[in-house]
Simulated scan of single mutants.
Amino acid sequence: MRDIALPLPLARAILGPMYRVSLHSRLPWRVQRALIDAGSALQPVPPGVRVERIRLGDRPAERLAPSTPAPAVPAAVLYLHGGGYAVGSLATHRSLNGRLAAETGLPVYAVDYRLAPEHPYPAALDDAEAAFRELVTEHGYRPERIAIAGDSAGGGLALALAQRLIARHGYTPAALGLIAPWADPNELAERPRDLVVNGPWSRACAAAYLGAGDPADPGYAPLHGVLAGLPPVYIQADVDELLHPQCVGLAAALRDAGVEVSFTESRGLWHVAQLQAALVGRAAAVLTEMAGFLRQAVDQLPLRDLG
Rank of each mutant, 00 (worst) to 15 (best):
E62H: 12
T264D: 09
A206W: 11
L135V: 06
V272G: 12
D240F: 09
E103S: 08
A130N: 00
G39E: 02
L115H: 02
L106C: 02
A252C: 01
L15M: 10
L176W: 00
C205Q: 14
G292P: 07
A11D: 02
A273R: 08
P117L: 09
A149F: 01
R63A: 06
H139L: 14
P231W: 02
L176T: 02
T264P: 04
A189E: 09
S25M: 09
F263K: 07
R164Y: 10
R33T: 09
G154V: 11
A204W: 14
V21A: 12
S262H: 13
R295P: 02
E118F: 04
P143K: 12
A65E: 07
D151K: 08
R55L: 01
Q236D: 12
R267Y: 08
A208W: 13
A61C: 03
A251H: 06
A162L: 05
A147E: 04
G155H: 12
A130H: 00
R30M: 09
R164T: 11
H244T: 06
V226G: 04
Q296Y: 06
G84Q: 09
H224S: 07
N186E: 05
V111T: 05
V111K: 00
L78S: 03
V196A: 15
A72Y: 14
S262I: 05
P302H: 14
P7L: 10
G307C: 13
L176N: 03
V136Y: 12
A130F: 00
R267N: 07
S202G: 15
G170Y: 08
P122T: 10
P7T: 09
Y209W: 12
S89C: 01
D112M: 04
P185C: 05
A175Y: 02
A183R: 01
A180C: 15
V197N: 15
G84H: 11
P222A: 06
M18L: 08
A257Q: 01
P117S: 10
R26D: 15
G57E: 00
L157N: 00
I36Q: 13
P122Q: 11
A253D: 02
G16I: 07
M18C: 06
W182R: 13
P17H: 05
C205P: 11
D240L: 10
G292A: 12
E265P: 04
E118A: 10
A257C: 00
L176Y: 01
R255D: 03
A102L: 04
P17T: 07
P245T: 06
P181H: 11
P185S: 05
V49H: 03
R55Y: 03
R53S: 09
G177R: 06
L165R: 11
R26M: 15
L230I: 04
T288W: 10
L279P: 03
I179A: 14
G155Y: 09
L242K: 14
S152H: 11
Y171V: 09
A162Q: 03
I146G: 04
G83Y: 12
W182L: 13
G154S: 08
G177K: 05
E144G: 10
L80A: 05
E241I: 14
V259R: 03
V108S: 06
P44K: 00
P215S: 12
A167F: 06
P46D: 01
A204C: 11
A102Y: 01
G48Q: 05
R164E: 06
R191G: 15
L287M: 11
R63K: 06
P17A: 05
G150H: 02
L42G: 04
W182S: 14
A101N: 04
Q246H: 07
A189H: 13
Y19F: 14
R267L: 05
H24S: 15
R168K: 14
A13I: 08
A124G: 01
R55T: 07
